[in-house]
């Protein structure tokens, strides 16, 4: 039998393995497979490859600790929420907003204070001091201004808790 008549189109065979061909075509391929050892081997090879791949993935991912994973995700969400809160805080206390707000508040306070003093008291009243709030951001231990050299790559990271900068470079061999 000529080769072209003997074998199934390989793309269709791949679709057949995945159960993605029409039922009539699947039947035709099944019949062909019972007569053709080459195509049968192709199907077997594909099935073995499939098992290999599944094993490869499972072997490598089965050692992941689910509870540590869960804890990490929840901690990261908390951390991100904290960052967002910090950003809002910093925005609120940034000079752009803090200066005009403080100026406005001072004017309003002075106006109220003097109107109160001159209208009702005519004497010195107590002056309260308002504490200034500051927000401290968790900054990296080092800022990299520049780098150069005989390197193939440079990577800047930081440790998760103490935010220590890690500068990693690959020397050109």
């Amino acid at each position: 039998m000529p080769k072209s008549l003997c074998h199934i189109d390989p793309i269709m065979l791949s679709q057949f393995i995945d159960g993605e061909v029409r039922p009539d075509e699947a039947e035709r391929i099944r019949k062909h497979l019972s007569d053709c050892p080459d195509c049968r081997k192709a199907v077997n090879d594909n099935q073995l490859l499939s098992s290999c791949f599944k094993n490869y993935i499972n072997l490598n991912t089965s050692r992941i600790n689910p509870s540590a994973f869960e804890t990490n995700v929840l901690a990261k969400i908390d951390q991100k929420n904290e960052i967002i809160r910090d950003k809002i805080k910093r925005l609120l206390f940034s000079k752009k907003i803090l200066v005009p707000v403080t100026a406005m508040a001072s004017v309003v306070f002075l106006l109220l204070y003097f109107s109160y003093r001159f209208t009702f008291l005519n004497s010195d009243g107590p002056i309260r001091r308002f504490p200034v709030q500051t927000s401290v951001a968790t900054a990296p231990s080092a800022i990299i201004d520049s780098f150069s050299g005989e390197t193939t790559a440079v990577m800047i990271m930081q440790t998760p808790n103490s935010h220590e900068t890690i500068l990693w470079y690959n020397e050109k061999v």
Partner: peptide
């Protein structure tokens, strides 16, 4: 004797930087 890597950093007072990579 040959320069392989140079960098300029700003390191926090009492801070640490970890540099690594050469084999």
């Amino acid at each position: 004797g040959q320069p392989t890597f140079q960098t300029i950093i700003q390191l926090l007072n009492r801070g640490r930087i970890i540099v690594g990579g050469p084999q």
